[in-house]
Design a protein around this nucleic acid. Structure first.
Lengths: 145, 145
DNA sequence: AATATTATTGTAATAATTACAGGTTAGTAT
DNA sequence: ATACTAACCTGTAATTATTACAATAATATT
């Protein structure tokens, strides 16, 4: 997993490598994603960054995220909620969603072991593994009550 | 996988077991899901059934599907599209979505092999595996052109 | 520093899903 | 069979995430 958080300069380099033009908004969005590994929604990004950039528009966040997804720097996580979530960790890993608190937990997974004979003639571009249930924290709470 | 298609009477029994009241609409929707294993959207169900039940409302389809999901007779498949898809096969299996033709293919998968130490204290209710890429058919077309 | 290209912003449009109220139907008891 | 009650169906309106678009602003290059 891309656990290491990148420095500001690294982010600039990443964007340049992908031929994405630099802008204050884009860098702030990418920096937020890099510093806060919480699979944020557009709204969460907006709420947070709006304090620093009061003129920020949600459209910009959508546009930026779409560009980052296109460039492979960010992945969309669709866990059945209405709002899409965005993940800066693009290496293969699973997502667990707690149905009680809503938190999302990453977990490692051996994607190779998922190969299926039925798919031998398919070209697989993307593999997503989503689990859901109760996290240890909520499980404990539930037992106590 | 629940490959066997159920008879009409089986469907009636299934609903009664889950304490879902019988109605013409519900039975028709369930029958459609049972006969057409295409992971249909609400709109597809509506378009098809509207021929037989001209007064059918989309709200009814939403309500019915929500009830069926609640009862565990149907699963929602969220593959990044705007519209949700619904799957009557509730046994564990993976979904492959072709990015070219949009078709969804089921494939078997050993969900047990997906266990992760990191999740040993989690209560897992649901496991979803989504792949995407190109199906053999579209792959062949692409090579030819 | 000037210019051309691209990004940002705000508003308006789109579209999936849900809320709601009134008429209808299914299940049950008589 | 009939009547009754609770639940369902339907159509419209509301909600909400995302995209489209046009005018303004910022970025990169010469």
């Amino acid at each position: 997993m891309k656990i290491m958080k990148a420095s500001y300069n690294d982010l600039v380099t990443e964007l340049k490598n992908k031929e994405i033009r630099l802008s204050h908004q884009r860098l702030m969005i990418l920096k937020y994603m890099n510093d806060n590994r919480i699979h944020p929604t557009v709204d969460e990004i907006y709420t947070h960054l709006n304090k620093e950039i009061p003129t920020l528009s949600k459209t910009t966040i959508y546009n930026t995220l779409n560009a980052l997804v296109e460039a492979g720097l960010v992945r969309i996580v669709t866990l059945g909620d209405k709002e899409s979530k965005y993940d800066i960790v693009t290496d293969d890993h699973g997502h667990f969603k707690c149905n009680s608190c809503g938190n999302i937990y990453d977990f490692e997974i051996k994607m190779e072991s998922l190969g299926s004979d039925e798919l031998k003639d398919f070209k697989i571009h993307k593999k997503d593994v989503y689990f859901s249930g109760l996290c240890p924290h909520c499980l404990k709470k539930k037992i106590e009550n």
